[in-house]
Design a protein around this nucleic acid. Sequence first.
DNA 1: TTCCAGGGGTAGA
DNA 2: TCTACCCATGGA
Length: 307
Amino acid sequence: MQSTILTSTPKSPFDFHSAATGHGWYQLAPFRYDAESRVLTWPQVLPGGEIIRIALTGSQAHERTPWLRAEVASPQALDQSGRDYVNAIVNWVMATEIDLQPFYRRAAQVSGYETAIDQAQGRFLRSPTLFEDFVKVICTTNTTWAQTKGMVRALIDGWGQEAGGDQGERCFPTAGALAGASEEALRQRGRLGYRAPYVLELARRITSGDLDLDAFRLPDWTTIDLRRALLKIKGIGPYAAASLLTLLGHYDHLAVDSWTRKLVIPRFFTGQEQVSNADIIAFYADWHPYQQLAYWYYDWEGTGETS
DNA sequence: TTCCAGGGGTAGA
DNA sequence: TCTACCCATGGA
């Protein structure tokens, strides 16, 4: 096993722990996060089929110069293209390119965002591929978090490549691997239930070249067009599209779901009956284009609410 | 047993 | 665009 160290410089400010744990993704396999040592690890298939293991660490909010460090264990030493590939992946996963300063400038004018600013919160951990994020988002719909974790685990156990190592780790399955599965197997063994045809169609469209998820990363999408394109994919509805928009760095579409209402109404609409979703969207309108960050990174716990 | 989880597709209006 | 209805799964 060879070891390669790769380093990069995220946009300032950057806090590795905040970036890793900003939302629940770090709890989903094949990610593993050690909160004590603050190391995020996962096994990764390279385009050539080689399996590597990535261990990420990074700077804390108050360090003068932000840094991200990837320790890569691979069967053979990484060549330049392998290093470039891993570099691109780790920076994508940690969302290091996002400039949070405009959001902080706005947030500094109101209370409730002191923790977010102090701890450099505002990034959302992404999976190495958009396929993985699309599947995981589909696995969060109309179910509990415990079951989401179970579905992702079952997909990895059933269709992910073995990563070696002493704990029987596996990679997240490629689109090709899931495209070859039967719907029945995804329903039962993958625990996807009625989501199975959605994941299967997604995997098959990608494998056939009918759908290129990476096109969604292009910077020239308007949020409204991107959302419209996401909604055309089977299994992606308003909630899932909003989650994916956030992961893709579009924060100017606030998705109001049952959880949003549970947090926002008692805090900002006390005593009001019949608060509509439109009322909540209007409440956040002057945060444009950071509505989603304003909602997500408000210090709900600091106000007695739980999140 | 029944309900429901930070939904989504479809038919029908 | 909106509403009713159905869709698997598993924990409470």
